[in-house]
Design a protein around this nucleic acid. Structure first.
Lengths: 120, 120
DNA sequence: CAGGATCCTAAGAGATACTG
DNA sequence: CAGTATCTCTTAGGATCCTG
């Protein structure tokens, strides 16, 4: 998880898609990015938003996002520890994608909604 | 790979994103969808477009896309066998996302391009 | 508070060979 | 032509416990 995650994109058209996709591909990256679009968050704030993710997983996702330059991690070298995550310029440039994704999801949520939910 | 791939989306905002993401998440789904946006393709045509994917993998991805209703698989029960894949209405509704993805990828390709390529 | 260390499993995906 | 069938490997991500 600390290797070159998007190796060789020396290919044709579709690969730009895959490249972009590889950045937000990760079980929780979409949600994380989405929450960070709304503002700076601390580690445990994000955890609270995504209770299903373990701290380890969350850390991994955050580190990958950071490595990809999509988010910024600001450490306050004080006690008690304080770390703030915020979206970077590059990360914010993904917002059209994120929004398109959310839009589509909202429009089609009934399709994959578990029966019993969304009793529309 | 024949299980409910997007289990419970009974959560809040970000989950619509994850839901949409889960449909195009798969090493080659983006590319496949992209090629199919341009027109109907036969199995080996797709293979030729994506030489790096093995037939098994390709089949799996195609099946998942089909199960998710994003593409249509039309079998001509004749010899020699002929199978055509085309994008469905639902699949086509993803095009804003795909295009946003590609747009972003094109705009930022230099960032993750392997040094030596795109000697800009 | 914000992780790190370890262990574990489930699934995605590649290689290779075979078939209706 | 359009896949199947195995087999194996890698990796994402979860569980649990520990620490600066």
């Amino acid at each position: 998880m600390t290797k070159p995650r998007h190796s060789s994109f020396a290919c044709a058209s579709g690969c730009a898609v895959e490249a972009a996709l590889s950045l937000i591909d990760g079980k929780w990256k979409g949600v994380i990015l989405f929450h960070l679009l709304e503002g700076t968050r601390r580690f445990n704030e994000i955890r609270r938003h995504i209770p299903a993710a373990t701290p380890r997983t969350l850390t991994n996702q955050l580190r990958e996002l950071e490595m990809d330059g999509l988010i910024c991690r600001k450490v306050y070298a004080e006690v008690p520890p304080k770390v703030e995550y915020s979206i970077s310029e590059l990360g914010r440039s993904l917002s059209p994608i994120l929004l398109a994704l959310k839009q589509w999801g909202d429009d089609n949520i009934e399709r994959f909604a578990p029966p019993g939910r969304i009793a529309a």
